[in-house]
Design a protein around this nucleic acid. Structure first.
Lengths: 83, 83
DNA sequence: AACATTCATGATCTGTAGATCATTATCATG
DNA sequence: CATGATAATGATCTACAGATCATGAATGTT
C-alpha cells in the first residue's frame, strides 16, 4: 500500500487510511503517538497546517515511512541526472 | 534515486541533495519556491521543526514528491542519527 | 429511540516557525 | 591571500500549530 503525497491533504488521507487499516480510533492513535486526538482530527481533515515532527510521530506509530522521489509526471530534469 | 525519510533531518538531507543535484543555490531555490534562504538553511541543517506546507513548497520546486509506505525492514535508525 | 463510542469543533494559551533585515562565517576561485 | 559568492546565525515580530478542556456532531449498536 503505497500512497503518493504532494500536498498536506494527501498526508492526512494516507494517515486516516493507515489508521483505519490498523483498526485504530483517533484516541488510540493519540495514545501511542503522543499526538492529541483533536490534532489528529485536524490533520486528517486538512484543517490548517501541521509540523513535520507531528507527522513523523504519527507515521512512526502507524509503522509507516516516507520516501522522497522525483515526480513521475512533468519532470524538468530526466531521472538519470538527479542524484 | 529514492531517499528514505523517517525524521525531519532526513528530509533536510534529501532537500539539500536534490538542490545540489539541480545545481541551485539556496537563494535560487528560495526564489522559485517562495521559501526564504534563511529558512532553507535551517531546514537543511535540521534547526527546529518545520511545517509540511513549507516542505511541500520546496519539494515542488525541486520536482520531488513523497510516497508513504509501510516501514521496510532494516536499520530503524541510521548510524549518524544515533546520539 | 436511546445510548455509547468516535470524531469534529470551538476557545484560550503557550511555544515556535517563518518573514524580514543585518551580520557573520564559510566556501570557491582567481 | 584576497575577493566575491554562498551559506549560516541572530534579533525581532507576526501568525499560527498544538496542548488542553469542553462540548457538539456524527456514527454505530441494541
Amino acid at each position: 500500500m503505497k500512497q503518493l503525497a504532494r500536498t498536506p491533504k494527501d498526508i492526512g488521507h494516507a494517515i486516516r487510511q493507515a489508521r483505519k487499516a490498523l483498526k485504530l480510533t483517533q484516541k488510540e492513535l493519540a495514545n501511542r503517538s503522543g499526538v492529541w486526538q483533536e490534532t489528529i482530527s485536524k490533520i486528517e481533515n486538512d484543517v490548517g497546517g501541521t509540523k513535520i515532527d507531528t507527522i513523523f510521530d504519527l507515521l512512526a506509530a502507524l509503522d509507516l515511512e516516507i520516501q522522497i522521489q522525483p515526480r513521475t509526471k512533468g519532470m524538468a530534469i530526466p531521472m538519470d541526472e538527479l542524484f
